[in-house]
Design a protein around this nucleic acid. Sequence first.
DNA 1: TTAATATTGTTGACATATCAATAATTGTAT
DNA 2: ATACAATTATTGATATGTCAACAATATTAA
Lengths: 157, 157
Amino acid sequence: MDYFRSFGIEVGQGKYHEEAIYGIVLLYNLINGEISSFLKPYELTPAKFNVLMTIKHQGGSSGISQVEISKHLIVTPSNMTRLLDKLEKEKLVHRISNKNDRRANIIKISERGGRLLDSVWPGYQKVLRRLGSLLTKAEQKTFDALLMKWISEVKSA
Amino acid sequence: MDYFRSFGIEVGQGKYHEEAIYGIVLLYNLINGEISSFLKPYELTPAKFNVLMTIKHQGGSSGISQVEISKHLIVTPSNMTRLLDKLEKEKLVHRISNKNDRRANIIKISERGGRLLDSVWPGYQKVLRRLGSLLTKAEQKTFDALLMKWISEVKSA
DNA sequence: TTAATATTGTTGACATATCAATAATTGTAT
DNA sequence: ATACAATTATTGATATGTCAACAATATTAA
């Protein structure tokens, strides 16, 4: 849903904050759509792609627990359980029970999962570059700085 | 899910576009969370709130069709069917069949729905102002301008 | 050591979103 | 007038997300 999108409310008289908030939501959805479309032919969704990427890059050779993946992606453990159920069924990851902590599972990316990621990665980067290049380098820099400031303020508020 | 969030990828050496894209997603989720929390005591979610606002502001006195609401919020008609099922059950809206076009429904906000919105609105505005005020007016203006530019570029690309 | 507490993962109930298929109706073109 | 196309709403299947309750296991404190 295009949350909070202009309800026909007056913007333009200094109400930049409202417009910016609606804009964030709109841009999020646009970006999301672009990335979803790109991933579709690989039978991947953003969620699955992100989980695979996290396992690959944060898990190293020793694997990673489900809770760690959830924390990295800021998602609930229950969500992770079910995403991994699917990825496991699709043979993109291995789920091994941890003998040192019998509550936990060790998640590793499979050969197949690794190959899939390798095939997706260059195109994914290209999509991000294409989206980024719609602003000039200077604009990107300014935008990014304000975005990071805003994020840190919201977080600490 | 905090999509695309740093996979441990090098940012900072001119890769503002990547950081900005991850940032958009992160900020979207933060804003969403703030608004969800604010709406919770009213037993409203962002989706329901947005639908009610759209009916109120785009529907006027003659009401609005389901398709029109979907288009305004950039959401599928099937999603709208089910959201309205709930809002109708909660007696926040009326769904009247249109005698001039027997395919369509006329959606109107109920007395109860109107009162609820009236009670939520000032606080909602306050949340947006609080979030906005984490940047200075000048920063908001700059950020908003770049955001709008980016959005229009993505749309026309 | 035992008892209380915290962590890990799962399940069930729910919310919001998509797509594809369908029924009913309306609009258009011949 | 009839056939074809478009629009409106609904349903079923599925994806991704939350929260709350739970079982199993680990950790910490007494």
